[in-house]
Amino acid sequence: MKEIWFPSSDMLYEVLPLSTKDLLKLKCVSKGWQCLMSDRSFIQGQLKKMEPLTGFFYQGRYQWCDENYDWISFIPIERVTTDIYIDVLDFLPERIVIQDSSYGLICCRSSFPCDVPVIYVCNLLNKEWKELQWPNPSRESCITLVFDPFKNPIDAFTKFKVVIVSQDETSTEGDGCFSFNIYSSETGEWRISREICLCNHNMQKKGCICVTGILCWLTDGDEILMFDPENEISWLIMVPLPTTQFNLTPEMCIGEAEGKLHYALISEHGLQLWVLKDHFTSQWDLTFTISLELLEKENDKYLFKIAEKLARDYNSAYPWIGTLAFKNNILLMRVAADIYLYQFDTMKMRHLCSLSALAPKPFFSATVVPYTMSLVPLA
C-alpha cells in the first residue's frame, strides 16, 4: 500500500479540523498517519483546539477503611446513550486509585494495601506511563498533577509536576497545617517546599482543581486552600456563602471553566454557580441561579418534590442530591441512585447512568475526575 504524503504537520492541522477521537480512527490507516499522530509539533497544534470534555472517571471510596476500592469506571458524555467503560486503566502494572487529570494526562497511585506504593502519570490513549517514587506514602495525602502544555510546550519533552498535599495535626504555632511536596519531571526529584498553610479544617475528598497554574482544594470549613507551585506560596480564601447561612446542609463542589474557578452550590435557595473574580481575594460573582421550583419544572422527568426531599435528608451522610464534579459549565451530579449531567447554558439535565452500572458495589462516596483526551506523549 502506497504511503500518504504529508507536506507538513502544520498544513494538515489546518486542513484537518478533527477531534482527537477522530484522529485515533486514522492512526491505523498507514505508517504515515501513525507517524503524524506521534509528531510532537502536530500534537501541540491539536491541543490548541481545546478539546471538549470527554467524560468523567468515577471510583468508589470507603469512608471508614484503610483499603481502597479499586474498581474504576469511565462515564463518557458525548453520546445520547451512555455506555460505561470499566477498567480502562488496566494497562498499568497494578490496581490503582485515580487522583487527577490534565490535558489528557492522568495521575494515579497504587491501591492500598500494597508493599511499595508508587505514583503513576499516564496517558490512556497511547498507554504510556511513568512511575514515580512516592515519598512517605499515605492514604490521606492528596496527589495533584500540574501540566500546562501551553506554558511548557511538548516539542522537546513533556514537562509536568506532581504536588502532594499532606495535613499535619499540629504545627509549632499550635494549629493544623498543610505542607507540600513537589516532584519535577525536569529534575526527576522530589523537594519539600518550605511553604506551609495554617488551617484547622480538613480537606474535602473532592479532588483538586487547577486554574491557570493555581491549585485549589475545598475544605470542610468554608475555605478553599490555594497553592501556587511555581512561586510556592499558599493562602486561604472564603467560599461565596458560609454554611451557617443555610437551614439545610448544602451540597457544593469547585471546578474550572474558561480559566476561572467556579463554585457550584445546591441548597434550599436552589442551584447557584459562582465565579471567583481574583485568586487572592474572596470576591465572587453570582453568574447563575435557579430556584428549586424552576429546576424541577425544567427537569420534571427526573426531579420531583426536591425541597421536601432535601429537608428530609437534613444532616444525612448521603443526601438525596450530591454535587460530584464541575468542568466547562457542566455539572456532574447524583440524584438518589442515578448520575446526571446538568448543563448551565440550557438549564437541562441528562441522565447518564445508575450507580449500579458503575461498579458491582455502588458507592455514594467517590472520587470523580473530569477527563479530556489528548495524544500527549510521555515516552
Rank of each mutant, 00 (worst) to 15 (best):
I196S: 11
Y103A: 12
C199G: 05
G32V: 06
C107S: 01
F280H: 08
S184R: 07
P113H: 13
D285W: 05
I182N: 07
Q99M: 12
S179A: 10
Y120F: 15
L89P: 08
Y103I: 01
N247D: 15
Y302S: 04
L145T: 09
D22R: 06
Y85I: 05
L218T: 03
A325T: 06
A366E: 07
L248H: 08
Y263I: 09
T281D: 09
E258R: 12
Q133S: 13
H262L: 02
D87I: 00
K127S: 09
S41N: 13
D39L: 01
H351P: 02
F91M: 15
S374Y: 06
G270R: 10
D90S: 13
C177W: 08
G270A: 11
D285H: 11
H269K: 14
P135V: 13
F227D: 09
V165K: 13
F180C: 04
A311Y: 08
Y69D: 10
I330R: 01
L261W: 06
L310D: 07
N123Q: 08
K206P: 00
P17T: 02
I77D: 05
Q46T: 10
I224Q: 01
I209N: 02
E293H: 07
Q283K: 12
N299P: 10
Y69A: 13
T243I: 11
G221T: 07
F326K: 00
H351N: 11
C65L: 13
W217N: 02
F326Q: 00
I43D: 04
K327D: 10
R95N: 11
K159I: 15
V163N: 05
I43H: 03
L355Q: 11
N152I: 05
G174A: 09
F112N: 13
P76G: 05
C353N: 03
N328Y: 00
F147N: 03
P7E: 14
Q283W: 07
D345W: 00
G104W: 10
G104D: 15
S102A: 14
V163Q: 02
L124I: 10
L18N: 10
I196M: 07
I43M: 04
S138H: 11
N247R: 12
I254K: 02
D222F: 00
I330P: 00
C216G: 00
I196C: 04
I43G: 02
I254A: 04
M1A: 09
E256C: 04
Q99C: 15
W5P: 00
V368F: 05
V97R: 06
R79V: 00
V97A: 12
L47M: 03
P149G: 07
T372Q: 05
G32D: 09
L16T: 14
K260D: 12
A317M: 15
C122I: 03
S184M: 01
E186Y: 02
L332T: 06
F160C: 04
P370M: 09
L36F: 06
S185M: 07
I224H: 02
K21Y: 03
S185C: 05
V97C: 08
N136T: 14
G176M: 02
P250K: 05
D278H: 12
L105T: 13
V335R: 03
L358W: 01
N181R: 06
L273T: 00
A156T: 11
T82E: 03
I266R: 00
F178W: 13
S185F: 08
K327Q: 12
